[in-house]
């Protein structure tokens, strides 16, 4: 279509140039154009948090961001964060604590929790609940997730 444009986006440290239609969401772009399917789509109206990615270092809803808007910007997804190892401690604790069931919300939860711990080294349970209050998990009832984030924070403090 004539309104398609070329964009260059840095995703997980790698430059991608693609020809996209403006109406394609960042979520659909990274999932279907780039094949990074770890980012999930749960509602497409910005409520569930399953599609959270990092845009220029800050978490955003990729369903409420257009792919064309990210031209010249940097995106990080769960795949990038996993590969770099920067949240491997949290992933390990989520695994051990069973802080996920179906796993559909998990990438969004991990990215959101990671930002919380960047901002607040030792959040209390209420702060963790507050910060994660925009991420829907239909399976766990949240307690295990709160436990796992709390423990990650504690271990990071102890490790210092």
């Amino acid at each position: 279509m004539s309104n398609k444009t070329d964009i260059s986006v840095n995703v997980n440290g790698r430059e991608y140039t693609r020809h996209v239609s403006p109406r394609v969401s960042l979520a659909d772009f990274i999932r279907h154009d780039l094949g990074l399917t770890g980012t999930h789509v749960g509602c497409e109206h910005g409520v569930c948090g399953a599609c959270v990615v990092k845009l220029d270092g800050k978490i955003v809803r990729s369903c409420l961001t257009l792919a064309v808007q990210t031209d010249g910007h940097a995106i990080e997804t769960i795949e990038g964060l996993s590969e770099s190892g920067e949240i491997s401690d949290m992933q390990e604790i989520f695994h051990k604590r069973n802080a996920l069931q179906c796993g559909y919300c998990t990438p969004g939860i991990l990215l959101t929790a990671a930002e919380l711990l960047e901002k607040t080294a030792t959040p209390d349970r209420e702060e963790i609940r507050e910060f994660l209050s925009g991420n829907l998990c239909r399976c766990t009832g949240y307690e295990a997730i709160i436990d796992a984030v709390e423990e990650t924070a504690r271990e990071r403090q102890d490790g210092k």
Binding site: G38, S82, N98, G103
Partner: peptide
Amino acid sequence: VPRANTLALLNGRGQFVDDIS
């Protein structure tokens, strides 16, 4: 015992229907 099949999900490497093409 932790669930071995959560590891892929935690790393963004799960595979749901919409991930398949």
